[in-house]
Amino acid sequence: MTELNADTARRAIVDHTRRLAEAAAAGPDATVPTAPKWIIADLVAHVGQTQHWVAEIIERRVTDPTRLPTEMAVLPTDSREG
């Protein structure tokens, strides 16, 4: 089994985010093949919120599971905002 370390995790996040961006080129209303009830816009929002959640954990250096953030990031109402 591969040991997870910061460099391996960072490379995986970058690689998977790149692949998501490539898939998103199909357009925001395209169906997600592995989750047919979702469209690309749903998947991008979900992954973005998750990445913001993880970033907060890293920034705050949370090590105690009881101190994990309980709120997800608020999405912009305009998809061109970032």
Rank of each mutant, 00 (worst) to 15 (best):
V54I: 15
P65A: 03
V47A: 02
A21S: 13
P33K: 12
P36E: 10
A30L: 11
A23R: 13
D64F: 01
V62A: 01
G27Q: 06
A73E: 07
A23V: 06
A26C: 07
T77R: 02
L75A: 09
R61L: 11
R61M: 10
H16M: 12
W53S: 00
K37W: 06
V47R: 02
R10C: 05
P76Q: 09
D64T: 01
P36D: 09
M72T: 05
A6T: 14
M1H: 10
I57C: 11
W38E: 03
V54Y: 04
E3I: 15
T66Y: 04
V74I: 08
R67I: 01
Q51R: 13
G82Q: 12
I39C: 12
R67G: 02
W53H: 01
L75T: 04
A25Y: 11
E71V: 09
W53V: 00
A30H: 08
H16R: 12
H52P: 03
P65K: 04
T34D: 05
E81I: 06
E59L: 13
W38T: 09
R19I: 14
E22N: 09
E81D: 15
L20N: 01
Q51E: 14
P36G: 11
V47S: 01
A55M: 13
R61V: 07
A12N: 12
Q51A: 05
A73Y: 10
V47G: 00
L43R: 03
V14G: 03
V74E: 07
E81S: 15
P36F: 09
D78Q: 04
R80W: 06
P69Y: 03
R61F: 07
A26H: 07
T8Y: 09
T17S: 14
L4P: 01
A73W: 13
R60Q: 13
L20Q: 02
L68M: 10
D42A: 05
D7F: 07
I13D: 05
H16Y: 10
E71D: 14
V54W: 07
A35G: 03
T66C: 04
A41R: 14
R60S: 06
A24M: 09
E59C: 06
R61K: 13
P69C: 06
L4G: 05
T70V: 13
R80F: 08
T66A: 14
E56I: 07
D64I: 01
T31C: 11
A73S: 09
H46P: 00
A73L: 14
M1Y: 11
Q49H: 07
V54G: 01
I58C: 05
A9S: 14
R61Q: 15
H46E: 02
E22F: 08
I39G: 02
P69V: 03
A45H: 06
A30M: 11
A30S: 08
T66D: 10
G27C: 09
L20P: 02
D64K: 02
L4Y: 12
T8M: 08
L68Y: 05
H16P: 00
A55H: 06
G82V: 13
P69K: 00
R67Q: 15
E22K: 10
M72K: 13
P76K: 04
S79A: 14
H16K: 08
